[in-house]
Design a protein around this nucleic acid. Structure first.
Length: 196
DNA sequence: CGACTTTGACCAGCGC
DNA sequence: GCGCTGGTCAAAGTCG
């Protein structure tokens, strides 16, 4: 297996946004030649400029803790995206509502494969061609019931060996399948986090 | 047969 | 206002 599992938000019980302990400056190599770099929300707004910037993951945007879904959305929040539609309409962010962004955390990994096995189960719900990139961006959602975590996976056209994985949201459940490699990565990333 | 992927369409935000 | 782009939906197809 030539996969690499970067860090991702997991909120078991701590009120602290999971990504808060991701404020790391990480560039390291792993057992399969994968290297990871974390990016902040601000940098995520400029995907084309991801490479080469000083990485740090943050939750400076309004986090899950502050998301205030409408009453109807509260009623069926399990397994559904907060912006998802019920019925025929497609609901995105409503007009007049302030744009609420979940904390995002992106990792640049050097890997042969696009799909990084981070131990969670993901369902692909979309794929889009991205401007200035010959590779499409894939959209995944955590399949665990009640977990709204999403991730985007995109390979850089500049460097085909680099995969940028963007995590959005916080896992509300434990990892489904852990791997020694992944735990090793986690340990390293936490070390980096404490140092930087 | 359930879980998952593919893919075209739809919608909102943003820049010009 | 219009067109471009990103993000999402959902039906159809695929796979184990």
């Amino acid at each position: 297996m030539d996969n690499f599992s970067p860090l991702f938000p997991y909120n078991s019980s701590s009120p602290t946004p999971a990504s808060s302990h991701l404020s790391l400056n990480l560039t390291t190599d792993y057992s399969h030649g994968a290297a990871a770099t974390a990016y902040s929300n601000d940098q995520l707004d400029h995907d084309h400029d991801l490479i080469g910037k000083n990485p740090s993951c943050s939750s400076d945007e309004v986090g899950l803790d502050h998301v205030s879904p409408t009453t109807s959305e509260l009623g069926n929040s399990e397994g559904n995206d907060m912006n998802s539609a019920s019925g025929s309409g497609k609901i995105h962010i409503k007009k007049g509502d302030k744009k609420i962004r979940k904390p995002k955390c992106a990792f640049q990994t050097r890997s042969q494969v696009d799909i990084l096995d981070d131990g969670y189960r993901w369902r692909k719900y979309g794929q889009k061609a991205v401007k200035n990139n010959k590779f499409p961006r894939s959209y995944y959602r955590c399949t665990y019931q009640g977990c709204n975590v999403k991730k985007q996976v995109q390979r850089l056209s500049k460097d085909e060996g680099v995969v940028v994985t963007t995590y959005e949201g916080t896992h509300s459940h434990p990892i489904e399948k852990s791997t020694d490699n992944f735990e090793h990565i986690l340990t390293q990333m936490q070390i980096f986090s404490s140092v930087s």
